[in-house]
Design a protein around this nucleic acid. Structure first.
Lengths: 166, 166
DNA sequence: TATTGTTATACTCTATAACTATA
DNA sequence: TATAGTTATAGAGTATAACAATA
């Protein structure tokens, strides 16, 4: 970025550019794989995967959204799509009548199983094949730190609600 | 991802999750900053930044697109937006009459200058503040490798055209 | 014939605000 | 009053295919 790079060191710039490049290319490839293999968008895959890992495959809408979707209406939209396809069910929470609980169905787990091998293969081929075990460890450590920092810095200029929406 | 994680080591999974988390949160924050500070989308910022670094601030459409936009019509759309705002100009190439050359205007450079300090500040605060100099060097090295690998693996199942769209 | 770019079109996704209902 | 979620609506962005023009 030429002169505008003042404020970042050369190494920082290099790391940032590499990060954005990897992020963009990897995301694009992965999205294509998920679409081709299971007709899932990346967001839908993330939501299903999250539910698949949750106890009983169930999560409240609010907890499901975290980090994946940045507006509540966006989550409602995606949850509707998944429900229409029979990959999740939605129902009221027994504990808190305001809440909606989303649950993965068997079909939802099948969709994950269908998509997952290709997903892993893509990651291995596109990302990990170029890295040593030590690289991967370093990457996990460093990005883990960065993730912690980002989590601790919620988007500023907060809006109406604190948790989900923006 | 529970049992479905077979095929990736625990460390690989950890690295991948951290990567997606950082990518998502950072992108979201940066997009907000660019929008607030200069009414630019992330894609528009990338296009302007690329032009700002190019000799004479000029690039052919095809060269401008690389890695930023994945369809030719998408680039045309964004270039139109930038041209309407006076941030770039478009004109025919003298060498190849088929080509369109895009050039940053002074207003375009001003827009970059307006947005850049906040952009750098966000990166410093959200990403680099948590990392040591050695971390940043490692990150640049590792992600540089990964980027090379990704560049060498163009999106498979190629389509109509080879370079940009597909 | 292949390449560069534009246009028309349809579609996906996201965000804002207004609204309902429960705590 | 605050929280959880939905709905209506509008807007931004992307992709595909058909197209025109030049190499």
């Amino acid at each position: 970025m030429g002169e505008r790079s003042r404020g970042l060191t050369a190494t920082e710039l290099e790391a940032y550019f590499a990060f954005t490049e990897v992020s963009s290319l990897l995301r694009h490839s992965v999205e294509k794989q998920l679409r081709d293999a299971g007709d899932l968008s990346y967001v839908q895959f993330q939501l299903l995967a999250r539910l698949g890992d949750a106890p009983d495959g169930r999560l409240r809408m609010t907890d499901l959204a975290d980090g994946v979707v940045y507006s509540r209406s966006g989550l409602t939209y995606q949850a509707q799509l998944l429900e229409q396809r029979g990959l999740v069910t939605r129902g009221p929470s027994p504990e808190d009548e305001r809440s909606t609980v989303v649950t993965v169905t068997e079909a939802g787990r099948d969709a994950l199983d269908t998509v997952f091998p290709g997903h892993v293969a893509a990651l291995r081929e596109l990302l990990f094949s170029a890295l040593t075990d030590a690289d991967v460890e370093e990457l996990a450590r460093i990005l883990g730190r960065a993730a912690g920092q980002l989590r601790a810095n919620p988007p500023r200029s907060a809006a109406p609600r604190r948790r989900k929406g923006q």
